[in-house]
Design a protein around this nucleic acid. Structure first.
Lengths: 196, 196
DNA sequence: TGTATATAAGCGACCGGTCGTCTTTATTTT
DNA sequence: AAAATAAAGACGACCGGTCGCTTATATACA
């Protein structure tokens, strides 16, 4: 029974992520969200303390599969550090093209909408971004040691720069309804900028 | 009298921009917005067709001073193309630091929140971004001709890349409450990447 | 029967948008 | 020039609906 509740909880999180990527924080109503996963209105607050806290959890929940995914690319011994990172971003690009640019990135959307207002969510975003960038950093460090990536810039700096540029490219993608901004990111920054 | 109405109209737009940068599109109520500029509720729709159309106009209105500002830096004959661009972004950075990272960029915020949903706003965003990037392009072209900026990448590509990376850096700034992401943009991309 | 959980009904507040009234301005008639 | 009328614009009350959240009650389990 506890498992069933945990399952429902995750369903709410996943559905919330989908809706918020589409309509943002304020544009996503709790009632509507719960209806789509057949959870009674009044039950929401037995799962989560508030909408704000729910969103913070959604952020943490959202980033997990991306961490896992990037991790698995980095662990692939057939790929050097840079090739892994490139393959990872290319797979994201492919996926976004297949889904007609719906969504984008929850982190980017929420950073803009409530990043400056909700402290709870800001901390969640900060942690998620840091976790993600730290992983990128590891890949870049490997690539440096393999002699593929330039060593005059620290992996930490490069990782953050790449993250930011990717977020901007995702926003641009939404507006242009095109993967060109994503491809530009890959070509210019991964191919031309950070290589040795 | 027509001037007074035009003045009020602009007041609404400016106030709307401020509120939307803080709370996003859905988080900004028409009633509240009008109260702060002493315009009666019922009058809003004599100024604007709808909230959505208002927002599209706000986007266009928002970008104008940035265009003018960048333009004036580019027209400064004491600065080469690259130095102008760098000085422009540095002045923005300075300003954001002075205002404690409130705001950020309306374009970035709205791209994330409604860029994928509202066609009217998407077109306004598209136009604003294109106008902005075209200007950047001109500066980059000058800098190329002056032998300062690398010529193996087109100004159009570089301009879009810079724009996207800047947007991402602004989001990151909000979360970290720090100008470090903005400085990283300037150092890594303007100093190290695009120079010859 | 007693206790804990689940939930439907409902809270006040606010949403974007409309509508009928009232004021103001412009035009016409004396 | 003054008065009467018409057109235009300003405006607040109000529309149905939704917001995030609470609470009283029903249900389930001990």
């Amino acid at each position: 029974m506890a498992n069933l509740k945990e399952f429902k909880r995750e369903q709410i999180l996943n559905q919330g992520i989908q809706l918020m990527m589409m309509h943002g924080y304020h544009g996503t109503g709790v009632k509507l969200l719960l209806d789509t996963v057949n959870v009674p209105k009044g039950s929401f607050y037995s799962y989560f303390e508030s909408k704000e806290n729910f969103t913070a959890e959604a952020i943490t929940h959202y980033i997990e599969p991306f961490i896992t995914r990037l991790q698995s690319y980095l662990n692939n011994s057939e790929l050097d550090g840079l090739a892994a990172i490139k393959a990872y971003f290319d797979s994201l690009t492919q996926e976004l093209e297949n889904s007609d640019f719906k969504g984008g990135c929850l982190l980017g959307d929420l950073m803009g909408e409530i990043g400056g207002v909700s402290d709870v969510c800001r901390q969640a975003l900060k942690a998620a971004i840091n976790q993600y960038c730290t992983l990128l950093e590891q890949g870049l460090l490997s690539a440096q040691q393999q002699g593929i990536v330039r060593t005059d810039i620290s992996p930490a700096t490069m990782a953050r720069l790449l993250f930011d540029a990717w977020q901007g490219a995702l926003l641009h993608m939404k507006i242009e309804q095109s993967i060109i901004p994503l491809q530009r990111f890959s070509t210019e920054l991964l191919d031309h900028y950070i290589t040795n």
